[in-house]
């Protein structure tokens, strides 16, 4: 195949042009992708004292950047589970009347072990360990 002058110049210009456009869009697209924030390595958090936490109630605790639901059951047991609904990321709550974990967004229901028992959630809630150290509740990651 014979390449004439015009064809040669056109392809040089074309490749150069594409390169030029890419060199504009690459930084823009990279700029749009948010930088990875260093996730604070949290393995355990303190969640207040046992005395000012009534039975059959709950609270949402900050575990690093993630919310964790801490429940004190009727028989004074502690349960800690990820509070982010596995369906669409809403934050769940404890229903003291039904003794279940409920997500208000789409009516997803979990039992106290985090198992998804009704509604749209596709997976169970992640479990956390709860220890009582000198009257203080400590939540730690499992495993």
């Amino acid at each position: 195949m014979k390449i004439n002058r015009r064809k040669f110049l056109n392809s040089i210009l074309g490749i150069g042009g594409i390169g030029g456009i890419l060199s504009i869009f690459y930084p823009i697209v990279s700029y749009l992708i948010p930088p990875k924030m260093a996730e604070p390595k949290v393995n355990s958090v303190k969640a207040g004292s046992t005395s000012d936490f009534a039975a059959n109630s709950y609270k949402i605790v900050k575990f690093g950047r993630k919310p964790v639901i801490l429940i004190k059951t009727v028989d004074n047991q502690y349960k800690a589970l990820s509070a982010s609904c596995t369906h669409l990321d809403c934050i769940v709550q404890y229903k003291s009347d039904t003794k279940q974990i409920w997500c208000a967004c789409h009516n997803g229901i979990y039992d106290l072990n985090g198992r998804n028992i009704s509604g749209p959630p596709p997976r169970p809630l992640e479990q956390y360990d709860v220890k009582i150290v000198k009257d203080e509740i400590v939540i730690t990651k499992m495993g």
């Binding site: 949402i60 605790v61 900050k62 509070a83 934050i91 967004c105 509604g119 749209p120 596709p122």
Partner: peptide, 26 residues
């Protein structure tokens, strides 16, 4: 870091999609 309150819903014009998704099983 608060539980989603009852009655969370989108604007009315997204409601039909929201409601349809609610009806779908896991």
């Amino acid at each position: 870091f608060a539980s989603a309150p009852k009655g969370i819903r989108p604007e009315w014009y997204f409601m039909f999609m929201f409601q349809s998704l609610k009806f779908l099983p896991a």
